[in-house]
Amino acid sequence: MAANRKNDINPSEITDEGLYRNRREFMRTASLAVAGAAALSLLPKNISIAHAQDSRTWKPNHPSQSDTKEELTPFKDITSYNNFYEFGVDKDDPAQYAGTLKTQPWSVAVDGHVKKPAVYHLEDILKGESMEDRIYRHRCVEGWSMVIPWLGFPLANLIKRVEPASKAKYVAFQTKFAPDEMPGQRTSALRWPYVEGLRMDEAMHPLSLLAVGLYGKSLPNQDGAPIRLVVPWKYGFKSIKSIVKISFVESLPPTAWNLATPNEYGFYSNVNPEVDHPRWSQARERRIGEFFKRKTLMFNGYADQVAGLYSGMDLRKDF
């Protein structure tokens, strides 16, 4: 299994520097063009460009400081192994059933303590944002992980645009509720709609991303189309998918998994190898495509950037 996935060796390791630079330059121009196409595809006529790139040769546009250099998880795995209970509890359910989700037209309601509350068309939210590729580690609470090249823009940008009032201490998010499009919502697996939340400083953190694509293409439905949150230092379920509402609130908002099992899933849910889930250890994880488990890193390897948000907090208590 793992043997045939050894493709993405960093080219700089094997190619001489000059040649590598040239190629990198070429890749950058090429992927700019493709990213442009991807951004276009988000506009009303959502043209699928799924064939435009092979995930093996894909290279990020605007390499960012926070990008991990680890081997990317193949596009196929990111889009066929999902937890998205709106479409069923099995990993292959979302890929199989998410086709019924209507992502056109899409709007996002912004409300609460904010100067510019409104129901925004997705196109208006994306207008003026420059899309960036961000390669993040993704760690599921179940003990597996991936490396995913998202395409999106900082959540902070949107927050600044809608101008929250000082009363806004938390940001709450909500997934679309449409049982006829999302078969899982006809069951009582979770309380619907799915809700999530971040503290304002977490939401404003430069790592927090609103993603609209991956591998330079628009998001497949099973990965949370057309717009989702990505908070790479938290367990995957915090990164809420298919967002229709963003509220600026004064007190700690409810979150879906915390409502389901409060003693197992806390509000913060930061990746933390030292604080085990009550029913399983979080010390190690299996990177999808690898045989051996690896050690889980504090804040999923983003401790340098985010540990400051939690100084003085007891992470055992605020898990």
């Binding site: 066929s80 192994y81 990993k91 292959d92 597996w144 299996r286 999808i288 045989f291």
Partner: peptide, 8 residues
């Protein structure tokens, strides 16, 4: 034909 996580 197994999923991305065959061991599981």
């Amino acid at each position: 034909n197994l999923s991305a996580n065959p061991i599981s």
